[in-house]
């Protein structure tokens, strides 16, 4: 909307009054925000959306029923406190944590890490850098680059010190991607690099968490054998 009229504000009226109630937006001159008051097409939740949801759920159910018809749920011998299987594994979604337990004392891997993860997840939407939702290195570039290199260096060194190669790999991957983002020239022709450069800090933290989660869980599930030693799943 242009403000060529020279007034303090522009009033906009939605055109289709039968579909949506009249909405008025006030935009003061001092703000630079652009407002597009174009209405989106909406549809009734019933029946279209509900039935689509039902179809999705049914398709999932069909897949699960097929799996259940052909693959039996695992069952082992009667629980026996005197016979510890080797290795004793937690459910798969905790195997990332169990993998960390292999490297760190239980207080760190079993208590501190999950607590921090949960806290971080809760805090993310309230995080102020997040709200800006702009590229991490676009503003205050020099200082942020310093902080980035120092902190990722310390983190990698720490993981190396504890010999946590499994957690180091995703960390290095994340750091590498962040470096690509950081040194992307403003006029790059690559869409991928441009989008990377525009990612905020929260994106990088979450992606790092995702990489770690996937790698640690996969390693714990498939690549760990007796005594938590390395095994290859295809060679049993």
């Amino acid at each position: 909307m242009s403000d060529a009229t020279g007034k303090d504000f522009v009033a906009v009226v939605a055109s289709d009054q039968r579909k949506a109630p009249v909405r008025v937006a006030f935009v003061t001159r001092r703000t630079s925000a652009q407002v597009k008051s174009q209405d989106e097409e909406v549809i009734q939740a019933f029946p279209e959306v509900l039935f689509r949801a039902a179809i999705a759920v049914q398709l999932l159910a069909i897949v699960l029923v097929l799996i259940s018809l052909f693959f039996n749920a695992p069952l082992e011998g009667l629980a026996d406190p005197s016979h510890t299987p080797n290795p004793a594994k937690a459910p798969w979604y905790f195997l990332g944590l169990q993998e960390l337990l292999h490297y760190f004392p239980p207080v760190v891997a079993g208590v501190l890490v999950p607590t921090l993860v949960v806290l971080a997840l809760i805090v993310i939407p309230y995080f102020n850098i997040n709200v800006e939702a702009e590229g991490l290195f676009l503003k205050d570039r020099k200082r942020r680059l310093q902080i980035f290199w120092v902190s990722s260096g310390v983190l990698c060194l720490f993981l190396l010190l504890f010999d946590v190669i499994v957690a180091l790999v995703p960390t290095v991957m994340t750091v590498a991607l962040m470096a690509v983002a950081a040194y992307t020239p403003a006029n790059t022709s690559s869409n991928f690099r441009r989008s990377l450069a525009g990612k905020p800090l929260s994106f990088w933290v979450m992606s790092w968490f995702l990489f770690e989660l996937v790698v640690l869980t996969a390693v714990g599930t498939f690549f760990r054998g007796p005594g938590w030693s390395w095994v290859l799943p295809w060679r049993s």
Binding site: A79, D80, P81, A90, V107, G110
Partner: peptide, 20 residues
């Protein structure tokens, strides 16, 4: 209540005892 269950829960519950 099989071996899989028993030891998975044992491993998990041992983590709880690491809380200071």
């Amino acid at each position: 209540w099989d071996q899989l269950a028993y030891w998975a829960i044992t491993v998990g519950s041992n983590i709880a005892s690491a809380v200071p």
